[in-house]
Amino acid sequence: MSDHAANGHSDSFEVRILRQDAPGESSYWERHRVEHEPDMNVISVMQRVAARAQSADGKPVAPVAWDCNCLEEVCGACTMVINGQARQACTALVDKLLDEQPAEIELQPMQKFPVLRDLVVDRSRLFRALTRVKGWVPVDGSYDLGPGPRQSRTEQEVAYPLSQCMSCGCCLDACPQYTKIELTPGVDESAADFAARQEQTHDSAFLGAHAISQTVLFNSHPTGKVNAGERLDVLMDEGGLQICGNAQNCVAVCPKEIPLTTSIARAGRATTFRLLERWFEK
């Protein structure tokens, strides 16, 4: 049990938040003072900050914008950089954070994605990567065609952890090889043109650990295997697996403890064979 909860430490604590009013604008730090309550997590801190709408020095400020949904660490929405590390705000417990760093809690938006406002970032590149790797089982359709392929318990036990990936982006934010792409719309550019340009840029940038792991997941599925070659080709295309620098932060920060580096190594082996196949069999 945390000492803070037990000892009833100071009544309030400070939160330092890196804010930004809109995309492309400059960011600034703002301090907030929050009353301490038992069992607080960063989400409840944000709720108090929003309700109070006042900075620590009593100045009225707009509520800090942030993203969240399930608050149970299964939806992946509330990723932010808390005390320097990308993690989920819902499982970041205040008492533990104050144990780590007693003076204050520091909140920043994710560093590898364009900021929309305050702690809200645009993670569309992350989802786009799932399309790039064809992250689905290519079924004939949703008509009743009987049960799926039989799978051993062992296969399920390998696949299940990978399929728990909730696209939170922690692995990407912590990855030294995954670098931020922030485009600004041109003066005469329509929203659709801008979106298309963004997509095109994302398509040649690093996929990231989550998408590599999804590739491995679908390539190991009995039906998903059908597209295995195509998926490997994507891993071997621009921005593919080769960008990985084996820093292995992905696996260390993954809140769901998904064996991402195992997936990366499996993808490495598969692409090695794919390379030989391309040279000697085609």
Partner: peptide
């Protein structure tokens, strides 16, 4: 039952029995 079959085909990682059934 058909919905379960469908979700199984879509790749849901349902827990398996020793023999590989759901």
């Amino acid at each position: 039952p058909k919905i379960i079959d469908l979700m199984d085909r879509l790749g849901v990682t349902f827990n398996r029995t020793q023999e590989g059934f759901l």
